[in-house]
């Protein structure tokens, strides 16, 4: 399995006096099969970081590694799930074709990609909806379709950018559990960016708390809540409340007029 290494990645927009540093020497490692959540105050460079990791954007300095290869373009081993499903699913294709399009691009034989797409759609509970267009489905179902597309692509690393931010609370809880289910079955490495602290604590093996811009890793918190997790039982645990509080305190300190953080806390 592949180790994802983020090595002192910085991204500066603009130049000279107008230069804005969005992320500043971020380093961390995602172990194979790990579910890593990244949280930070709003306006910190979470999206920039994810774009650098996914190979869509070149960092100003530093590098992203998959094992010992440097990421310079979107790698085959990664699949993204975006926050805005209504803009990332193609409205002119039905769900099934949305899922198979990346597989076609990967030159997968027809029979294989049809089977993979059907399996992926079934695994997110959309087995009967393949012929529907995205706009014929609810928001939660569209995001399931986006997850199915990522799963069918058979990545080793799943990158999720605030994937559940645009759905209602109940759907959100369902999708979180769906993600845990899928992850438990596939042993993917999951990198999930969120601004929802509960969600991060509920899902993660480890939480990376980012600072306000210029963004660094403020702290890494290990979440050793027992698995399988449960929306009710897990969230009732005193450890859950404790972890939640400590993440919240970190973020609150960051989003106020907090003093600059001392050194980042790289790990791994």
């Amino acid at each position: 399995m592949t180790v994802l290494g983020i090595d002192r990645v910085s991204k500066t927009y603009g130049a000279g006096d107008d230069a804005v540093t969005a992320i500043d020497e971020i380093s961390f490692t995602a172990e194979p099969g790990e579910l890593l959540c990244i949280v930070g105050p709003s306006g910190c460079g979470k999206t920039t970081l994810l774009r650098c990791i996914s190979g869509l954007m070149a960092p100003t300095s530093g590098a992203v590694h998959l094992d010992d290869r440097t990421v310079t373009a979107p790698p085959r081993a990664m699949a993204p799930v975006f926050q805005d499903y209504s803009r990332s699913l193609l409205p002119w294709m039905d769900i099934h074709h949305n899922v198979t399009l990346p597989l076609k691009a990967a030159r997968m034989p027809r029979a294989e990609r049809e089977a993979l797409a059907s399996d992926a759609l079934a695994s997110v509970g959309l087995g009967a909806h393949g012929r529907k267009y995205p706009w014929q489905l609810s928001g939660g179902m569209q995001q399931r379709a986006a997850i199915a597309r990522a799963l069918a692509y058979q990545p080793e690393i799943l990158l999720l950018d605030e994937p559940f931010a645009s759905v209602d609370a109940q759907t959100r809880a369902d999708l979180e559990d769906l993600l845990l289910q899928v992850w438990g079955r596939t042993h993917l490495t999951v990198l999930l960016v969120t601004h929802d602290i509960d969600e991060a604590v509920y899902l993660a093996d480890r939480i990376l708390v980012l600072s306000a811009a210029p963004t660094r890793v403020r702290k890494t918190i290990t979440v050793d809540l027992p698995r399988p997790r449960d929306q009710i039982a897990t969230k009732e645990l005193p450890e859950f409340a404790h972890l939640r509080a400590s993440v919240f305190a970190l973020i609150k300190a960051e989003s106020g007029s907090a003093p600059p953080t001392d050194a980042a806390t790289p790990d791994g």
């Binding site: 869509l56 979107p74 085959r76 990664m78 993204p80 975006f82 990332s88 990967a106 597309r149």
Partner: peptide, 13 residues
């Protein structure tokens, strides 16, 4: 939509 282009690139189109 730039997000669609990001999606397409991410999935290796």
């Amino acid at each position: 939509d730039p997000l669609m282009l990001d999606m397409a690139r991410s999935f290796g189109l």
